[in-house]
Design a protein around this nucleic acid. Structure first.
Lengths: 123, 123
DNA sequence: ACAACATTTCGACTATCGTTGAATTATCGT
DNA sequence: ACGATAATTCAACGATAGTCGAAATGTTGT
């Protein structure tokens, strides 16, 4: 992770709509969500959503894949972890280790699948 | 931490200069650095640095305090940790805990004081 | 092939960001 | 009180971001 990569990622996250999209995808996990579902949940016009999804994609924070008519977006957890590590790197001159790590492979202890929270994602 | 607080913080970090300033302060720890020292290290004009320091301060990521003629800036580690937590909140529907925590109070095992790295902060 | 659906592309407009240089405020030493 | 130093404020300018609506692209089912 270099500084231009980091600023691109941070810039992508530095917007109400994109942050909401990103957090929705983080909560959703590797399965991701179709663009239309995201648009409906956040009440966005198609072209506006596309614009924001492109920002996040170009920053490398999310990935896209086509499934029939729909395009599924999902968090790139490696990129997310790299960004965290970059921000906290060498914290306090190396006094402490602050290495946040998300492991999407892990399942919940109760075995339930990740759900899409509804109320918390209102625009 | 709410979304507008988070976007403000992310927007503040989403700039080459401010990111370099922030990381410099993170590495420095609670002691912080005077504005002039930062300006000299990054080769910035006074007014430009002030502008960026204000962005970071208003976002709540850094604090300022006066010491004689100089104004010392330091990372607000609580704000930093809160931001990390917000980004990774409810990750994968709660499958994993990803809570990055920096504890500035801790000292290095070798007892050395945090130094300001030089080469890694070139603008 | 054709109509319906899902998403992206394009053009135009407004608002905000970031830089620069000159002037201003605050503090120190004498 | 005065000059020097440290940092901020202000005004002006160019560049980029974000929004909207209309049109275009790709995909499915019949």
């Amino acid at each position: 992770m270099d500084s231009s990569q980091a600023t691109a990622s941070l810039g992508a996250l530095a917007h109400e709509t994109r942050l909401a999209v990103f957090r929705m995808l983080v909560a959703r996990g590797p399965d991701g969500l179709a663009a239309g579902v995201i648009a409906q949940n956040l009440g966005l016009t198609p072209s506006s959503l596309t614009f924001h999804l492109q920002q996040l994609t170009q920053a490398g924070l999310i990935t896209q894949r086509r499934v029939s008519r729909q395009i599924i977006y999902a968090t790139d957890f490696t990129a997310m972890n790299d960004l965290m590590a970059y921000l906290t790197e060498n914290c306090c001159g190396g006094a402490v280790s602050c290495a946040p790590v998300c492991q999407p492979g892990a399942r919940r202890e109760d075995g339930a699948e990740p759900e899409l929270p509804r109320a918390s994602f209102k625009a």
